[in-house]
């Protein structure tokens, strides 16, 4: 008989499957780097996405349809998300570290200057400023969505979430446009490497955050949430704010200060 508030999960195949799939993905990506053969990598990525989908589908069933997420389980989930976002912050700190390492004392190979000699960097007042405005606006609309959720206004929540999703997609499109019109590439000195690695990883996080928000939007339409229990939504909002803050640092350091 169970009379405690914790959720002891049933045996699940997903942890071991995702481990092997990710291992496979790493190897196939290396193969792509070396042989330019991308089909195995794509297949591997498809398996990752499929496993993620099924794992998270199971969590949704455990919470919404089985009611295993009591108040203390919700607290532990929040701690889990906080730790995850902390690890993501440290992940980005490593890229900023690399950027400052190279930009604060440029070597003579770079022309003793930053940006390196003959690198034409972006004007921070063009697309990057637009992207800053877009992300800050999406921060407003996502807060609006959360506030509407807390007062149990479904209509406004859906509308403001849609606005946020739209702004997220718009950001990705503008970033894509900036990439294809860039006068330098990832192999143009350490400037190009740090620039595309950092902004590229940020862009990937924006795409993941947008997918998370889209997922929350459809769960909301499916009536999976109530105004006191909507952890998935709350966590997508935390994640979105994290992505937003990373962009502000990116904009201030790499685009503006490092111009």
């Amino acid at each position: 008989m169970k009379n405690h508030q914790f959720h002891l999960v049933d045996p699940s195949p997903w942890p071991i499957i995702i481990s092997f799939v990710i291992l496979n993905y790493t190897i196939m990506t290396l193969m792509f780097f070396n042989t330019k053969l991308y089909t195995p990598m794509t297949i591997s990525l498809t398996f990752i996405i499929w496993t993620m989908f099924t794992w998270w589908r199971d969590i949704k069933r455990e919470s919404t349809y089985q009611g295993n997420h009591t108040s203390s389980v919700m607290v532990s989930m929040k701690y889990g998300m906080i730790l995850f976002i902390t690890s993501e912050v440290l992940f980005f700190i490593s890229f900023f570290w690399s950027f400052f390492h190279h930009s604060l004392a440029p070597t003579c190979e770079l022309g003793l200057m930053w940006p390196p000699k003959d690198i034409h960097s972006f004007n921070p007042l063009h697309i990057p400023l637009m992207n800053t405005i877009i992300l800050l606006s999406s921060g407003i609309s996502v807060t609006w969505a959360h506030a509407s959720m807390c007062v149990n206004n479904l209509n406004t929540t859906l509308k403001s979430l849609l606005i946020t999703i739209f702004l997220g997609i718009y950001f990705s499109i503008l970033q894509f446009y900036e990439y294809i019109s860039s006068p330098f590439s990832i192999s143009d000195s350490v400037y190009g490497s740090t620039f595309f690695l950092t902004t590229g990883f940020h862009g990937m996080h924006v795409i993941i955050g947008t997918l998370f928000l889209i997922h929350v939007f459809f769960r909301m339409k499916n009536i999976d949430f109530s105004f006191t229990h909507h952890l998935g939504m709350e966590m997508s909002i935390w994640y979105w704010h994290f992505v937003d803050v990373v962009w502000l640092f990116l904009y201030m350091t790499i685009y503006w200060w490092g111009k």
Partner: peptide, 13 residues
């Protein structure tokens, strides 16, 4: 608006 939290909840929750 979304359903009442107790109506929506099930199981142990």
């Amino acid at each position: 608006e979304l359903p009442d939290p107790i109506d929506l909840a099930t199981g142990l929750e």
